[in-house]
């Protein structure tokens, strides 16, 4: 089946590409753009490992077709750091010991980024609610939530 042309902005760079409609945004990012920071796990929207921002809103990229990204702006984990330097939220994840195996962490960071963009000063309960779509089997939730609160206090 023929490909569909789209114009999508990824991490600030506009791209005109042709994608097959049966390609998820997740596969497009990982396989086509080699932006492998966005992770694949459950393919159901249950784990949050594939979380990216779409026009500033957190979405599961496994539940979106790449063609739906046409005329939209996508931000992935690679788009948060500047010149490979972590931003303050990522620094907070490091400082609070929120990273264990790290596989869920890009998704957690993106969900946290979205949460703080909507609610710059969340309570612990709000952080737990906001990150409840991101599974961490290492069980680092306490530190992840602490990191988000710390980043909030730091005003990111």
């Amino acid at each position: 089946m023929s490909s569909t042309p789209i114009r999508v902005t990824v991490n600030g760079a506009e791209r005109e590409v042709e994608v097959a409609p049966n390609t998820t945004l997740l596969d497009f990012l990982r396989d086509r753009l080699q932006l492998t920071g966005t992770k694949e796990c459950c393919d159901l929207g249950e784990c949050g490992a594939c979380t990216v921002l779409l026009d500033g809103r957190a979405v599961n990229s496994c539940l979106m077709l790449a063609v739906e990204g046409d005329a939209r702006e996508v931000t992935t984990i690679e788009g948060l750091s500047e010149n490979g330097r972590p931003n303050a939220l990522q620094d907070a994840f490091l400082a609070k010991g929120a990273v264990q195996c790290g596989f869920c962490i890009p998704g957690q960071v993106m969900a946290a980024r979205y949460l703080l963009s909507r609610n710059p000063h969340p309570t612990l309960a709000e952080v737990r609610e906001g990150l409840s779509g991101n599974l961490c089997r290492c069980g680092g939730y306490v530190q992840i939530c602490e990191a988000v609160l710390a980043a909030s206090e730091a005003g990111t």
Partner: peptide, 16 residues
């Protein structure tokens, strides 16, 4: 954590 930076920036390379 050694390797922490690569993990928070998405640069850590897993098998996939």
């Amino acid at each position: 954590r050694a390797g922490g930076l690569a993990r928070v920036t998405g640069r850590q390379q897993f098998i996939a």
